Computed example of a mutant assay.
Amino acid sequence: MITKELIEEINTLARKQRTVGLSPEEKERQQTLRQAYLVSFRENMKSVLDNIEIVDELPKNKMN
């Protein structure tokens, strides 16, 4: 699970990349964090979609 601290670290590395650049170790850490974030996001989205119930019809007494 991605915590607030990990998101802050991702953002810190992104800011540093835009300003002074990243060392090879920092680039590797950034990629690792991004992949972990994407995995967590996909799992959460799948969970949300799995819990959606689709209803095709309105009850007969509610139709206009």
Score class of each variant (00 low, 15 high):
M1E: 08
M1T: 09
M1D: 05
I2F: 01
I2L: 11
I2E: 00
T3G: 05
T3A: 03
T3L: 00
K4N: 08
K4Q: 08
E5C: 01
L6V: 14
I7N: 13
I7T: 12
I7Y: 11
I7V: 07
I7F: 10
E8H: 13
E8C: 07
E8L: 12
E9L: 14
E9G: 09
E9K: 15
I10M: 07
I10L: 06
I10T: 07
I10H: 04
N11D: 04
N11V: 05
T12R: 10
A14W: 01
A14K: 01
R15A: 03
R15C: 00
R15Q: 06
R15V: 09
K16S: 04
K16V: 08
Q17S: 00
Q17W: 03
Q17E: 05
T19K: 07
T19S: 14
T19Y: 06
T19W: 05
V20R: 08
V20D: 13
G21V: 03
G21R: 05
L22F: 00
S23I: 05
S23L: 07
S23A: 07
P24T: 03
P24D: 14
E25R: 00
E26Q: 08
E26H: 03
E26V: 02
E26F: 02
E26P: 02
K27F: 02
K27I: 03
K27Y: 02
K27G: 05
E28P: 00
E28T: 00
E28S: 07
R29S: 06
R29C: 02
Q30M: 00
Q30I: 01
T32N: 02
T32C: 01
T32F: 01
T32I: 01
L33C: 04
L33P: 00
R34V: 11
R34P: 04
Q35N: 06
Q35Y: 01
Y37E: 02
Y37G: 07
V39I: 14
V39P: 04
S40G: 10
S40R: 05
S40N: 13
S40C: 06
F41S: 13
F41N: 15
F41R: 09
F41C: 15
R42N: 15
R42S: 13
R42A: 09
E43D: 12
E43Y: 15
E43M: 10
E43F: 13
N44R: 13
M45P: 10
M45T: 15
K46I: 14
S47D: 12
S47T: 07
V48Y: 11
V48T: 10
V48M: 08
L49D: 12
L49I: 15
L49F: 10
D50A: 09
N51E: 09
N51W: 06
I52C: 08
E53Y: 01
I54L: 11
I54K: 10
I54C: 04
V55D: 13
V55F: 05
V55L: 11
V55M: 11
D56P: 04
D56Y: 10
E57P: 13
E57Y: 05
E57L: 04
P59N: 12
P59Y: 03
P59M: 14
K60V: 09
K60G: 05
K60I: 08
K62M: 14
M63P: 06
N64S: 14
